[in-house]
Design a protein around this nucleic acid. Structure first.
Lengths: 125, 125
DNA sequence: CGATTGCATTGATGTCCTTCGATATAGCTT
DNA sequence: AAGCTATATCGAAGGACATCAATGCAATCG
C-alpha cells in the first residue's frame, strides 16, 4: 500500500536540528512506534545480532512466553515498519535486519559532531 | 563522558549486537514509545532545535491544531521518558532537551564502526 | 495422496492511548 | 484582594493495540 514512498524522509530529518514537518513526523513515528514494545525490541535485537544475518522464526517463537500468532503479529509490524524483511526457504521463514532503516534512525537522533546543540552552544563561542 | 547513568540501561544495550534482556527491552521500549507519536516527535524537534536550548510552552501550543491540555499531556510523556526537562520561570514554563537520552538512543541503534553487522560480514571466518 | 509441521491470518476481548472539556494551580497585575 | 494569564490535572469517550484460540495456507514426509 504505501509501496515505495521516500521512506522515513527525504534524506535526513535531523530531529535535533530543525523542526520536523508533519509528514516527516508521521513517517518517523510509525517506525519509532514499532520499536515501542519490549517484545518487538527483543525480536529485533535477536534478528540483528544473529551470526549469519538471519534467523528462523522457529528460533524466535520459543524464546518468548507468548503464543505463536502473537510473535507472528509482532514480526509483521516490524516488517511493515521497514526494520526487517523476510524470506521463505522451504518450510521455514527467515528474518533479517534492514540496516538502512536503523542507520537512518540513528542519524535522526544524532547531533552532528562539531555542531553542538543550541543548549551547549550558548557558552561555546 | 557519562559512564553509567541510570535509566535506559547500564551502559550500552547495543540493540544490533547482542540480544536484549527483558529489563533492557522494557526500559528502552518506554522511550521509543514516547517517540512513537507524530505530535511528540514534532514537539521534541521544536524543543531541541530552538536557539538558546529552550522553548516556552506558550510557543509550542499554538503550533498545533490540538487543545492545550493535549499538548501538556504529550510534554508530560516526553518528560517522563527522560527526553526533556522543564523549568518554571515566572508565569511561563520552559522545556529543554536532555541530550544524554537522545545520545543513548542513537548509540543503541548504531552499529559499531569496523564491526559490521553479521549480514554484511557474510559470517566471515 | 493424506498426515504433519511451520507460519500467517482471522475474530474476539481486555487494556492502553489520544483527545477533549472542565477545572485546578501558579504567578503576574491592577 | 480580585482578576487575568499560563500551565497542569481530572474524568470521560472513542479508537488503537496486544494477546489469544481457532483456522487457513504452504511445504515436507510417509
Amino acid at each position: 500500500m504505501p509501496g515505495r514512498t521516500d521512506g522515513v524522509a527525504a534524506c535526513c530529518p535531523r530531529l535535533l536540528t530543525a523542526p520536523l514537518d508533519e509528514d516527516q513526523a508521521g513517517e518517523l513515528a510509525k517506525v519509532f512506534k514499532a520499536l515501542g514494545d519490549p517484545v518487538r525490541l527483543r525480536l529485533l535485537s535477536m534478528i540483528a545480532s544473529r551470526a549469519g544475518g538471519e534467523i528462523c522464526v522457529c528460533d524466535l517463537t520459543p524464546a518468548f512466553d507468548l503464543s505463536q500468532p502473537t510473535i507472528s503479529h509482532h514480526l509483521k509490524l516490524l516488517r511493515q515498519a521497514g526494520l526487517i524483511q523476510s524470506e521463505r526457504r522451504g518450510t521455514w521463514v527467515y528474518y533479517r535486519l534492514v540496516p538502512e532503516m536503523t542507520d537512518r534512525l540513528a542519524g535522526v537522533l544524532a547531533r552532528p559532531a562539531g555542531e553542538p546543540l543550541p543548549e551547549s552552544a550558548g557558552a561555546a563561542s
